[in-house]
Simulated assay, not measured.
Amino acid sequence: MAEQDPITPAPENNGDDAPQAATIAHYVKDLSAESPSAPTVFQWTEQAAIDVQFGINGTKVADDVHEVVMKIDVKATSAQGTHFIVDLSYGGLFAFRNIPEEALPPFLLAEAPRLMFPFARQVVANAIQHMGFPPLLLEPVDFGAAFAAQLEAEQTAQAADQPGGAGEPPVGNA
């Protein structure tokens, strides 16, 4: 009996049961860029403080297809006022096959944003530059570490809610 090549799937399954993930598309879902203090902002000499906020959401849109939306809010302010505001919702469609539901969150909330971030970062930089400011290149984000921290926080909160946990003591006797 000949040995089966480990790379080539056996003829009876044709590799149809192998886990697969693919990017279908990336797109700007919503973009708002404004400089409410223009044109006087261009005469200000004070350096602006930049505040950047991220949010990530993954939803199922069809069988084996999920949408991931990365929300990036950037606001530049100084004592003189608001220099600019950019609100971006950057979406991505991802197809999955033969991946269990419990394995999806790490991909949807860590790996997909990692793949999308360079493109979203460029949209933000271009929007700011088109308003007349120097482009802002956002620092790389470790989405894997952020996902792990979120999981840890949820587990800690769940443990605190359990009787005998670190939260409120149980009321009464059972």
Rank of each mutant, 00 (worst) to 15 (best):
F54E: 05
A62D: 15
N98H: 05
G58Q: 08
K29Q: 15
V69W: 08
A79T: 12
M70R: 00
G81S: 06
I50P: 05
G58T: 03
K60N: 01
P100C: 00
H26N: 12
G81H: 11
D64T: 03
D87G: 14
E101P: 00
V86N: 03
V65F: 09
H26M: 13
H66R: 09
T23Q: 15
K71N: 12
V52E: 06
Q47A: 13
L104S: 09
D73C: 02
K29F: 15
H26Q: 13
R97V: 00
V65S: 10
I72F: 04
F96A: 11
D30Y: 02
P100N: 10
V69M: 07
A76L: 12
S32K: 02
F42Y: 12
V41D: 07
E101V: 08
V74E: 05
H66N: 13
M70Y: 07
L88Y: 03
D51M: 08
G91D: 03
A21L: 15
G92Q: 12
V68G: 06
K71W: 01
A21D: 01
I85Q: 11
G58H: 10
P39G: 10
I24G: 00
L104K: 08
Q43D: 14
Y27C: 13
A49N: 13
Y90L: 04
V28G: 09
E67H: 11
A38P: 00
I24V: 13
D73F: 03
I72W: 04
N98T: 00
F96M: 05
I72G: 09
H26G: 07
S32E: 01
I24F: 09
S37A: 12
S78P: 06
E101Q: 14
S78Y: 09
L104A: 02
E67T: 14
D51F: 01
F42E: 06
I24K: 13
V28T: 14
T77G: 01
Q53F: 01
R97D: 05
A103I: 03
S35R: 02
N57A: 14
L31A: 09
E67D: 05
A62H: 10
A25T: 13
W44V: 14
V69G: 09
F96W: 09
E101M: 02
K75H: 08
G92Y: 08
E101A: 11
S35G: 08
L93A: 10
A33V: 10
Q43Y: 13
H83E: 02
L93Y: 10
A79M: 05
E102S: 08
Q43W: 10
V61F: 11
A33D: 05
A25C: 05
A38E: 04
V74Q: 07
I72T: 12
F54D: 00
K60A: 02
E46R: 07
S78D: 11
A38Y: 04
S89A: 13
F94N: 06
H66C: 04
Q43H: 09
D73Y: 00
Y90P: 06
V68D: 01
H83P: 05
V68S: 02
D30A: 01
G55A: 15
E46D: 14
V61K: 15
E67G: 13
I50L: 11
A62W: 03
E101L: 06
